[in-house]
Design a binder for these strands. Structure first.
Length: 438
RNA sequence: CGGGGUGUGGCCCAGUAGUCUAAGGCGCUGCGUUCGGGACGCAGAGAUCGAGGGUGCGAAUCCCUCCACCCCGACCA
């Protein structure tokens, strides 16, 4: 991609009304635009990141046997009346409106009311179970207070997976499988997630949240200092703690009666209170919705049995915002390679014709080699400005071509998070970036 | 929904004891000079001062109502 053709531009001034790190950086760097509180447009740069996140999630969902589908965003009132959620909590969180002939509709803020009757149409026998269906789609929630940039929105992309089982043991096993898949997803996204016991809220009593520790978070989690994930997150304590005897205790403050400094009920070590953002969660719904829609299947003995359900969500925009909260410095974003909008940022530092030619050659060679490259070919822009923009945008690898480097028949390859560049001969650049010349 | 804050060209803002050509910076357009960490000169374009109402000869500025955005709290898969 030629940067001179890129739709969005970086801006120098911090947006007036934003204080969250992710909002400031994503807006300044041109990844997103705010339409209103909690509702954002994803610009070309931001959409690339969102798609990368989507891709990671899709891969892991497919890997555990999930089948992707796409449900409607607009729902008829009737489905929601079946579960009683048109009034409560529908009245608070659901955008509801009337169409032609006063027929009432709502925008989906979750999809149990749609997926359950859908599954009922196709699944009649225990032989059809288990089944796991997921979608990646916009959710709408009339939040009392949208806030913190992408972290809490009124319209946001979410991956929601629903599973259906005959036996409880099968639900339990799949719940576990999803939990492991989620760990993998967040790891791939560059997010160190803590698995936390939580209340099921309006959904169920059985749930776990995947929490990323950050001061930007809105939850407080109580975590045992010997917690496996917590130890892994805090590298310092990891060195001190032996890897044996690790604990798995962590609870959302909403459901715990522990206080900071209290003793872990599992291992007796002190418990810490940490601020965190919930990037994913998993629930066992059991028969709550299969009952409402009478989703029953014949078991091997010919008897009708209600399907057992689980549901599992990840907010993509929230994940993106969380990544920025965790991966940035005073200069800008530092994207993990897995979600960076481009693999490398090629910067031609001067107007000099030799520099231009060398940069253009590199650009073409890299593209040919399958490397995603953003080429800053902008003219009449000072070196400092280009470098600052590159820092802000945060592509993890940067390739600088300049009068200096060209004299040595080389380019500088620099990691976004590091200061010292690696000097490479032009012919070796493509290889260094993981491409090959043919 | 309670509390606090803010609304002035695309962006950041000055101006709020009332005087009408609303200041500056960024960005944008043109010309020239620059070119390794946010360059410079000259010349330009661009504003229903959040909205509606009111009081004045006169309102960005005073009064009333409303709206939006941000933050804290409540709430929250």
């Amino acid at each position: 991609m030629l940067q001179s053709k890129l739709f969005s531009k970086t801006v120098r001034e911090v947006p007036a009304d934003e204080s969250s790190v992710n909002a400031k950086l994503l807006l300044r760097a041109g990844f997103v635009d705010k339409l209103m509180a909690g509702v954002y447009s994803f610009l070309p740069l931001g959409l690339r990141v969102l798609k990368k996140i989507e891709c990671v999630i899709r891969e892991e969902m497919d890997r555990i046997g999930g089948q992707e589908l796409l449900l409607p965003a607009m729902h008829p009132k009737e489905n929601w009346e079946k579960t009683g959620r048109w009034k409560d909590p529908g009245r608070e969180v659901m955008f509801q409106f009337a169409g032609r002939g006063d027929r009432e509709y709502g925008l989906g803020w979750t999809h149990e009311e749609i997926i359950t009757p859908l599954v009922k149409k196709f699944v009649h026998s225990y032989k059809d179970l288990p089944i796991a269906l997921y979608q990646i789609q916009a959710k709408f929630r009339d939040e009392p207070r949208a806030k913190s940039g992408l972290l809490r929105g009124r319209e946001f992309l979410m991956k929601d997976l629903y599973s259906f089982h005959l036996e409880e043991s099968d639900l339990d096993e799949f719940y576990n499988t999803v939990s492991l898949a989620y760990r993998k997803i967040f790891e791939r996204l560059g997010l160190k997630a803590l698995v936390v016991e939580a209340s099921g809220g309006t959904f169920s009593k059985y749930s776990h949240e995947f929490q990323v520790l950050t001061p930007a978070g809105e939850d407080i989690v109580m975590v045992c200092e010997n917690n496996r994930d917590f130890v892994a997150i805090n590298k310092e304590s990891a060195r001190k703690t032996s890897l044996k005897n690790l604990c798995d205790f962590a609870q959302n403050r909403e459901i715990t009666d522990l206080e900071a400094g209290g003793k872990c009920p599992k291992c007796g070590k002190p418990v810490h209170a940490e601020r965190a953002i919930e990037v994913g969660n998993i629930f066992k719904l059991k028969t709550k919705y299969s009952q409402a829609f009478n989703l029953a299947v014949k078991d091997a003995g010919g008897k009708d049995r209600l399907a057992l359900m689980g549901c599992y969500g990840i907010g993509l925009g929230r994940a993106m915002g969380s990544i920025v909260e965790v991966h940035h410095d005073e200069r800008g974003i530092i994207w993990p390679e897995t979600v960076a909008p481009f693999g490398v940022h090629l910067v031609a530092l001067q107007e000099d014709i030799q520099v231009r030619n060398a940069a253009k050659k590199l650009y073409e060679a890299l593209q040919k080699a399958g490397v995603e490259v953003l080429y800053d070919d902008c003219e009449n822009i000072s070196a400092g400005e280009k470098l600052n923009d590159a820092d802000l945008i945060g592509i993890p690898a940067r390739l600088i071509v300049s009068e200096k480097s060209i004299g040595a028949d080389s380019a500088e390859l620099k990691k976004r998070a590091e200061n010292t560049p690696q000097i490479l001969k032009l012919k070796d650049v493509v290889k260094a970036l993981g491409g090959s010349m043919d």
